[in-house]
Nucleic acid binder design. Sequence first.
DNA 1: TCCCCATAAATGTCAGACAATTAAATCGTG
DNA 2: CACGATTTAATTGTCTGACATTTATGGGGA
Lengths: 253, 253
Amino acid sequence: MPDNSKSQQKTAEKDLSAQIAQAIRDAILSGDLVADDRLPSEAELSDTYGVSRPTVREALKRLAAQSLIRTKRGASGGAFVHRLSYPEAYGQLATTATLLLSLNEVDFATACRARFALERGCAPLSAQNRDVDHLAAMRAEITRQSQPGLSDEAFCASDVAFHRALVDGASNPVLSWHLAGAVEGMQPLMNMITFRNRDRAEIVALHIRITDALEARDAALIDQLLNALCTVTLRQAEATESLHAQKNSGARI
Amino acid sequence: MPDNSKSQQKTAEKDLSAQIAQAIRDAILSGDLVADDRLPSEAELSDTYGVSRPTVREALKRLAAQSLIRTKRGASGGAFVHRLSYPEAYGQLATTATLLLSLNEVDFATACRARFALERGCAPLSAQNRDVDHLAAMRAEITRQSQPGLSDEAFCASDVAFHRALVDGASNPVLSWHLAGAVEGMQPLMNMITFRNRDRAEIVALHIRITDALEARDAALIDQLLNALCTVTLRQAEATESLHAQKNSGARI
DNA sequence: TCCCCATAAATGTCAGACAATTAAATCGTG
DNA sequence: CACGATTTAATTGTCTGACATTTATGGGGA
C-alpha cells in the first residue's frame, strides 16, 4: 500500500494545525457537521489525528476565529458547531472589508462606486417592501444630520444609519448583510473626508428627496438620486484630497 | 490598589488568547501596524503579555485564520502583517456567506433576490466599462451552456462564470469581490436545484440577450433581463421544491 | 424534599524541551 | 582577496506532562 502516505502535492504540506482545521472546516461546510453538533474533546481529537493537544487547540482556535465553532468549559463542555448570527457575520465581513480596502490601497472612488452600485441594486426591493418604520428612521436621521455644529464623525454615523435604514427596507437580511459590510469597510476611508457645511446641506437635501421617493415607492427616482449622491460624495472626496495635496506640497516647500 | 484587577465588565473576561488576538487585531486595523510589519517573536510576545508561548501561539493562529498575519519559519522569520489579496478575501467572504446561508436556514428565494439585486446594481457600471474580453468570455460560456447532456454541476459552473464575467465588466474589484461572495455562498443552495432542458434553454436565451445588451451598453435592458432571469430562477427553485415535497410525501405515506 | 458539597469531565494555562527551518556569519581553501 | 561550504543562531512547529478553572451531575445530610 504505497499511497498510504500523505500526497505531497495535494495537501500543500501546511502546518498540522492548519490541516486539521481544514478537515473540520470541510466537515462543517459540507454539512457533515450541523449547527450545535459537539466535536470530540481535545484529547479525543489529538488521539484521532495523532497530534498533541496544543496542536489540536491551535486548530480549534483557528476555527473559533472564523466563528465556525464556539467552546464551552466544564463538564458537558467542548467545541460546538456554531450557528453564525447575522451580527457576527456582519463583524466578519466588516473586518475583511476594512482590511481589503486599507491594506490594498483601494482608492476611495472605487470603494465609493461599489458601495453605491450595491445600494442602487437594492433600491427597487426597498421601494417595494419598505415599512413606515424605515421611513421614520430615515426622517429621524435627517433631523439629526441637519443640526448645525455636528462633528464630522457624528455626521458620518448618521449618514450610515440613514443608508442602513434604506437598505433594511428591502426586508432581505442577506442584502442588509452585504451592504453593511460594504459601508462599514469604507468607514476608515470615509473618516478622511471632511464635509463642509454647504456640502452637508446638499447631502441632506438628497436624503430628503430619497426618503420621499421611497415613500412614493418610486424606484427609478431613488436610483437617480443615489447616483447624484454618489457624484456628490466623489466630488467631496476629490476636494478633500486636493486640499491635503495642497497642504502637503506647501509644507514640503 | 483595588482596581488593578481586570475590569469585570469592559474586557468581557474572554480567553487570554482571544484578548491578545484582539489587541493585535486592533493594532492592525487601526493602522498602528501596516502591511509587512513584523510582529515581535512569540517569546517576546509571551513576555510582553505575561503569558506562556502556547497561549501566544493560539492568539497568532486566530489572526492567521483571518488572514491578518502570515508566519515564516527560520531565522529572520516570524509573524508579519499580511496584505490581504483579493483571492484570499474572496475565500473569506465565501466561507462566511456559505455558513450564514446554510446554518441559518436562509431560504433560496431570499438569497436569490439578494444576489440579483446586487448584480443589477453593477449592471450600469458594467455597461459603461465592459471590454471586448468580457463579452468574449460571456459568449464562450453561453456556448458551453448550450451543449446538450451537460451535467447540472457543469451548467451551474458555467452560469457562475458567465455572471462573474458580467460583474468583472464593471472593472471594480471591490464590486467583483462582493458579488463573488454572494454567488459562491449560494452554491450549496444552487446545487439543490435541477434544471430541466426547457428551463436551460430559457436561461441561455436570456444570457444571449444580456450579452447583446451589454455590447450595446444598454443598462436599462440589462436590468430588465436580469430581473427576468431572477424570476425564472425563482420559478425553477419552486418547481424543484414542490417536486421534492411531492416525493417526500409519497415516500412518507 | 431541598440544599450543599464532592466528583468528574472538559477546556484554559503553564513550563520546558526538542525538531525543523532558514538566514547570516564564519571558516577554509584556491 | 574571493568564493563556496559549513557552522551558528534565531524562530516557528510540535510534543509531553502537569496544574488551574469551570461546570454539570450525583450523593449525602438536615
